[in-house]
């Protein structure tokens, strides 16, 4: 379980997080929803220790990661996988080497075993046989699938997703969402997804938490969320419906 308590973060004068409290249950998909610039990415990067908070704590399975030194934090990160917004694949490496990267860095597996696992993971993300391609040759949706394969290759307990469907056309976005759900169901890991897309949130979430002006203003299952009387949530829902009608 991930527990965030009283998290504050400012960049210069700009206050981004102003006391975030959130519990992220194990083995479920939690979606953190908020408009662009609400500090969702900043929150996500705190969870994996890429950013240190000004105040507050984040415990992962009871350990406060904000107090860990470089080496311990590095160890802790082996529990995590992360899919970045534009996938952040290493553009100097092939798709196969990208997916194999965590295996080669953190395990002593033989090269043939590494290749076997990479092939299997690429199949899971519905991109079999793409090992030799370079990331620059892939579309946005394909990059994210490869990014997902890389994020889950070490069977992490927690997988973080930074805007997994942003910038994709609707069918591709839906395909990525299906893939996220399928992967979560198959392995039962803890998934944390941040998005500004309410469709994505309703599609994949077990729990939705709404981040607004540096705080979590609403939290609950998609059903609870739909019925929320919170005006911020209402405004967001209205925008979502508008988009649905137009789309």
């Amino acid at each position: 379980m991930i527990e965030i308590r009283g998290l504050h973060k400012s960049f210069g004068e700009q206050k981004v997080l102003e006391g975030v409290d959130l519990q992220i249950p194990k083995g479920r998909t939690t979606v953190i929803l908020g408009r662009s610039g609400a500090g969702k990415s900043v929150l996500l990067k705190h969870i994996i220790g890429l950013i240190k908070p000004d105040k507050g704590k984040i415990s992962v399975d009871g350990i406060d990661i904000t107090r860990l030194g470089d080496k311990d934090l590095n160890e802790m990160r082996k529990k995590f996988g992360m899919l970045f917004q534009e996938a952040a694949l290493f553009d100097s490496m092939t798709v196969g080497d990208n997916v194999a990267f965590p295996l080669r860095e953190h395990t002593k597996l033989k090269e043939e075993d590494v290749r076997g696992i990479v092939a299997q993971r690429l199949e899971q993300v519905e991109l079999p046989g793409l090992e030799e391609k370079m990331p620059a040759e892939l579309s946005g949706g394909m990059k994210r699938r490869v990014g997902l394969a890389r994020a889950i290759v070490l069977d992490p307990e927690i997988v973080l997703f930074d805007e997994p469907t942003t910038g994709l056309d609707p069918p591709m976005a839906e395909a990525i969402e299906d893939l996220i759900m399928k992967t979560q169901r198959r392995r039962g890991e803890t998934f944390v997804v941040i998005t500004h897309d309410i469709q994505t949130a309703f599609h994949i979430a077990h729990t939705i938490a709404m981040l607004h002006e540096g705080r979590i203003v609403e939290e609950g299952s998609p059903e609870v969320f739909r019925k929320s009387s919170n005006p911020v949530v209402q405004a967001f829902l209205a925008r979502g419906e508008e988009k649905e009608v137009r789309g």
Binding site: I48, L50, R77, K78, M82, E86, A88, F101, L160
Partner: peptide, 11 residues
Amino acid sequence: TEQIDALFAMA
């Protein structure tokens, strides 16, 4: 392009 963050994230 967040590849440095990705390295950190992959321990």
